[in-house]
Design a protein around this nucleic acid. Structure first.
Lengths: 348, 348
DNA sequence: ACCGATCGCTAATACGCATTAGCGGCAGCG
DNA sequence: CGCTGCCGCTAATGCGTATTAGCGATCGGT
């Protein structure tokens, strides 16, 4: 751990240009305030030396002195590039990077965050959070206690995905699941469905809650609209359960579960969508092999990433005002798995 | 741009624990040298206060004072998460993240690097390079001048992919393309091929050069082994050219080009591999729809990322010694596109 | 009882930059 | 000629931490 060799500093530049270190700093920051004037020839001389030496300010010192350094932290509650969550995080990062590049920010990925009780923690002994001007939070579930702390510390941040209040409103850029599911439910009713079942994953995440809320709101005119949990049963057992209930359509939270249900339904003699309609409530987050285009909606992940950075920069420089919470619309996907009920072919 | 609110500092901790700031620092860094002793009860008292306040050292100040901060810079010569290069960078990042997490490092992505003359530049007015202890360079082609500068500045770095010297040896973790192509060429000769053609992309990148070198070395016993450039001709024209030359096998640098050639060959009445064998020299970097398993090799991208971080940590703490250059073997893929020549079916 | 050696801690300084009060010089004005 | 005001710049200070020299106290030895 030998310290790195000494680099060129502003003092060096100052000496070479025959000015003071302060002048170098002023020139570098292009300060042209009324009370800080630098003669054009002096400025040019300093810039000349800077160009010759290829000097660039030490970002750590700059940050320490000024409090800012144009770095945006990115915290992922799971590793950012795992094969498993690959298709989940990637679009977000795509948008985040794009906007960060546009506004000239670097990205600091907090990969060092240790895992405690099965999830990553922002706050730990050696967190480098404060190296960033603010940070973006990614993850299906985010610990409320950590949000609380971020709020308390007044650390600028934006969550990707809607979050409940945590000692104050949580800035976020989310997807409007409630509205999307609502519209899908109405469409099912329009097609003649009267008994609907929502198959959830049994998680407490806001994203899950919003979908259920949308389902509930959209099925007000139904004969029956119940909610069950996928993990409790196998796909085949779930299909049996649906038959027993008389449901003609399922709204499935998890894409892979929808795929499994669809094939289980057909296996049991039900056509899709005639015998059973299957609506998915989100893009696949893990690769699932299927040729079917499911009816559902598309989550604007990339755009969420972009806007998260946009909102964050607003939060950082205090210009955000009240609009620190955004819900982006989801585009509905006209798939092949939602249709008129009653054309079931039951071969049992 | 109002400065962020004052945070808890070591001075605050010191006051609360009734010790000096220096003591807090010593406790925090767990210093147990012979010439620095802290009474256990004092240490506990300080740790107690630290735990209560949830204090974490300011990384900028820490970096300024010590010269290190466990941050690894990642520089990509193209945006890191674009759809186009998606499958190219992702595996590297996967490995990089994994190893960084293991050694407790954060990753700093230099997304702010501006584009000059069509490529990103590491060194620019406002680069945050020195915020990291070292950095990893990703990209098909890396500017030699920037490598030179890194060497001159003695900034720790590791390139992913072999690089030619640039004012001294360049630390890298690359894939052994030369050996892989060499072996494939020998295999072609073994199968009876006598006239071979290498279809390159006409780039000056080391990776490209290594493949050609392997091709050259592996085809010493051939009747003809020539090299042409793909971009000069359409796939159909290239196939005509191959026929005219009497080539029975093509070694194709770019995966997408290989896909195009294969279908062009079949379109022109050649069977694959009987009429024309097609060997690919790298994994697809952009999604190309094909059902064929091409004969070629696999680039250990993920492992390259991992080992790049490993080598970098060695370079940073000076323990790397001479082993700062690694070439990882590529696993050959037994596909369906390399076979015995002469069984061509020419329907022309 | 005196001296040297440890022990436990602190004061002081450096790290490189941003910021501000203010200094010397010069011009303009009366 | 003296005063005011502006111009161009610098000295000084702070940001929060790591590091080191060294101080007072205690202890062991003779």
């Amino acid at each position: 751990m030998t310290p790195p060799p000494r680099r060129v500093t502003q003092r060096d530049i100052a000496r070479m240009a025959g000015v003071s270190q302060a002048t170098v700093s002023l020139v570098l920051n292009n300060r042209t305030d009324a009370d800080v004037r630098i003669a054009p020839e002096t400025r040019d001389r300093v810039l000349q030396v800077i160009a010759e030496t290829g000097y660039a300010a030490d970002p750590a010192a700059r940050r320490l002195a000024s409090g800012f350094n144009r770095i945006i932290g990115v915290f992922t509650y799971e590793p950012a590039f795992p094969s498993g969550s690959r298709d989940f995080f990637h679009p977000f990062l795509l948008g985040i990077e794009e906007y960060a590049e546009r506004v000239g920010c670097d990205l600091l990925l907090f990969t060092s965050a240790p895992v405690v009780d099965g999830r990553r923690r922002i706050f730990h002994q050696d967190n480098r959070l404060r190296l960033a001007d603010g940070c973006i939070l990614l993850g299906r579930e985010i610990d409320g206690a950590e949000l609380l702390r971020l709020n308390r510390d007044r650390f600028p941040y934006v969550a990707v995905g809607r979050r409940d209040d945590a000692g104050g409103p949580v800035p976020y850029v989310g997807a409007d699941y409630a509205s999307a599911v609502h519209r899908l439910a109405e469409r099912a009713l329009d097609l003649g469905h009267r008994r609907l079942t929502y198959v959830g994953m049994g998680t407490a995440a806001e994203s899950s809650h919003d979908r259920r809320r949308g389902f509930h709101a959209g099925t007000a005119g139904a004969e029956s609209a119940r909610q069950i949990t996928a993990t409790a049963l196998t796909a085949d057992a779930t299909v049996d359960d649906l038959r027993a209930d008389g449901s003609t359509v399922v709204f499935v939270e998890d894409f892979a579960t929808a795929v499994a249900l669809e094939s289980a339904a057909r296996r049991s003699g039900l056509t899709v969508p005639g015998g059973l309609s299957v609506v998915t409530l989100g893009d696949p987050t893990v690769p699932v092999p299927t040729d079917i285009t499911f009816t559902g909606f598309r989550i604007p992940r990339e755009e969420m990433g972009r806007q998260a950075v946009e909102v964050l920069t607003g939060v950082i420089d205090g210009s955000a005002g009240g609009l620190q919470q955004r819900l982006l619309p989801c585009e509905l996907v006209e798939g092949d798995t939602l249709g008129v009920p009653g054309s079931a072919v039951d071969r049992r």
